[in-house]
Computed example of a mutant assay.
Amino acid sequence: MILEAVMLQVKRGMEEEYEEAFRKASNIISSMKGYRSHELQRCMEVKGKYLLLVKWESLEDHTVGFRKSSEYQEWKQQLHHFYDPFPTVEHFERVSIED
């Protein structure tokens, strides 16, 4: 399992519209192969700042399966115009802390 983490900055004054668009777009990502879960967190200190966390079965499920799909084009159309600057996507894997 991998974790996709994205820090998002939404254009000023568009926060409510973005959250509603994100709710609607959530069914797109949740229908994809390898998708496990996702959540959107709103920053308490910085207006318009959000953290998106998505769990995928594999890196390729996100980078190939989702990103190269027609569903991604719909996701992009619904959400990408809200971001300024455009976010950087990073992927993480769990570090075992047990002996």
Rank of each mutant, 00 (worst) to 15 (best):
M1S: 14
L3V: 09
L3K: 00
L3W: 01
E4M: 04
V6A: 05
V6M: 11
V6T: 13
M7G: 09
M7S: 15
L8R: 02
L8C: 04
Q9P: 00
K11M: 11
K11Q: 14
K11W: 04
R12H: 11
R12D: 15
G13K: 11
M14A: 10
M14I: 05
E15N: 14
E15T: 09
E15P: 12
E16V: 12
E16G: 11
E17N: 15
E17H: 14
E17C: 11
Y18Q: 01
Y18E: 04
E19S: 03
E20M: 09
E20W: 07
A21F: 05
F22N: 03
R23L: 13
K24L: 05
A25Q: 00
A25G: 07
S26W: 05
S26N: 13
S26P: 12
I28D: 03
I28R: 04
I29F: 06
I29K: 00
I29V: 14
I29Q: 01
S31M: 07
S31Q: 07
M32Q: 15
M32R: 10
K33F: 07
K33L: 06
K33M: 03
K33T: 07
K33Y: 01
Y35T: 05
Y35A: 08
Y35P: 03
Y35D: 06
S37G: 02
H38D: 02
H38C: 00
E39I: 10
E39V: 11
L40E: 06
L40F: 02
L40M: 08
Q41D: 10
C43N: 15
M44I: 08
E45V: 13
E45Y: 13
E45L: 13
V46N: 11
V46D: 15
V46M: 10
K47M: 13
G48L: 03
G48N: 05
G48F: 01
G48V: 06
K49Y: 14
K49F: 12
K49N: 08
Y50S: 10
Y50V: 06
Y50W: 09
L51W: 07
L53E: 09
K55D: 04
K55E: 13
W56P: 00
W56A: 00
E57M: 07
E57I: 04
S58Q: 09
L59N: 08
L59I: 09
E60I: 05
E60S: 11
E60T: 12
H62S: 02
H62T: 01
H62V: 06
K68M: 13
K68F: 09
E71K: 15
Y72K: 02
Q73S: 15
E74N: 09
E74F: 03
W75K: 03
W75Y: 11
K76C: 08
K76H: 14
K76M: 07
Q77C: 13
Q77I: 09
Q77G: 14
Q78P: 05
L79G: 02
L79W: 01
H81V: 10
H81Y: 13
F82I: 08
F82L: 12
Y83E: 04
Y83H: 08
Y83S: 08
D84Q: 14
P85W: 00
P85L: 07
F86C: 03
T88Y: 12
V89C: 02
E90L: 13
E90C: 10
H91L: 08
F92E: 03
F92M: 04
F92W: 15
E93H: 09
R94D: 09
R94Q: 10
R94Y: 05
V95G: 01
V95R: 08
S96K: 14
S96Q: 10
S96R: 12
E98W: 08
E98I: 07
E98T: 11
D99E: 13
